[in-house]
Amino acid sequence: MKILLVDDERRIVEVLEAYLEREGYEIHSADNGLDALKKAKSIKPDLIILDLMLPDISGEEVCRLVRKESDVPILMLTAKSAEDDRINGIVMGADDYLTKPFSPREVVVRVQAILRRVKKAEKVQLLEFNGKKLVIDIIKKEVRVNDKYVTLTPIEYKLLTNLAENPGRVYSRMDLLEKIQDEGMYYEGYERSVDTHIKNLRKKIEQDTRQPDFIVTVFGMGYKFGGVLDAANTPV
């Protein structure tokens, strides 16, 4: 994984490079804000370690400009220890904040923790069930059944993702109706309208609608998702 280290104190850069490279990271460095912005575009790092006190433009400004184009994780380094400064850094888009002086080992631990969180978040962007018979791409809002794309209405997609994100959980019709209403689609309490959408959804994703694998009826209660999450998607 590539890390862009932005700091104008050469000693800090050298020490952190040594510690991070020992952990297997590929390190690129910049000693000013403008160079950092150029490298952020060209290198496309997996994480940026960003000092706020830079000789040209501030680290805050670098963070703001990076955030306009990328959601790359940012760990801020600064001599500012006031609570308002830390809060301001997080509000601007930093994922974590570390004040100087710091231990290089703590920087490594913070980097590893941030990247673990990112990896977990990425895992839930692609939900795969029953040996990839059903694949839901949360980012692209696409659904594939047996490797073929299916077209769902916004309501069908919302129902499917809410069920699939919580396999085995039983949702009443009212629960599902509220999920639809969160999207600004109001049905004035017509719970049975959910049945119609479920019926249409099953036609698109089930091999046998009479014996569904994914959208399962729980008699007298509502519906649950019966698909089995593939091992590659299981959180560790």
Rank of each mutant, 00 (worst) to 15 (best):
K140W: 10
I138D: 06
K41D: 05
K148D: 11
G226W: 09
Q207W: 07
V111K: 01
M76V: 10
Y157H: 14
I74C: 02
D84A: 11
N130Q: 07
L52N: 03
Q112T: 00
P45F: 08
G222F: 11
L20K: 00
R11I: 09
L47A: 02
E178V: 12
R11Y: 12
E156W: 13
Q181M: 14
L77C: 03
N88A: 09
R173M: 15
L229D: 10
S29Y: 09
K39Y: 02
L5E: 03
Y19N: 03
D31S: 05
T217R: 14
K179V: 15
P154L: 04
G24F: 01
Q207I: 00
E9F: 08
P235D: 05
K123V: 00
N88F: 13
V62C: 03
Y157C: 07
G168L: 07
P212C: 05
V72T: 00
K2P: 08
S58T: 07
G184R: 11
R22W: 05
I139Y: 12
K224F: 07
A113R: 02
L50D: 00
A79F: 04
Q125S: 08
G226Q: 03
V109M: 12
K199Y: 15
F214H: 08
E9M: 05
E21G: 01
R192Q: 13
K119D: 08
K224L: 14
T151W: 13
E188D: 14
I3P: 01
Y149Q: 14
V107N: 06
K224M: 11
M76Q: 02
K224Q: 12
V108P: 09
G93N: 09
L75K: 01
R210Y: 15
D51I: 00
P101L: 06
V13T: 00
M53C: 01
M221Q: 13
E83W: 13
L16Q: 04
S81I: 01
I114E: 07
P167L: 13
R67C: 02
Y187N: 13
I198L: 14
N130F: 09
Y187S: 07
M92C: 06
M92E: 10
L54P: 04
H28C: 06
L75R: 04
D51N: 07
D46K: 05
I43F: 06
F219W: 14
E9P: 05
L37R: 11
I43T: 02
A121Y: 10
K80F: 15
L176R: 10
T209E: 15
G189T: 06
L134H: 11
Y149L: 07
D84W: 09
V135A: 06
Y149S: 12
F214G: 05
I49E: 03
M174F: 15
E122C: 05
V91R: 15
S103F: 15
P73F: 05
D31G: 04
D7F: 05
D137N: 15
L54R: 02
R64C: 02
Q207D: 15
R11S: 02
S81D: 11
L152D: 11
L177P: 12
Y186P: 06
V108N: 08
Y25C: 06
V6D: 04
H197V: 00
L52A: 07
K132E: 12
E165G: 09
P104D: 07
E178G: 12
V150Q: 10
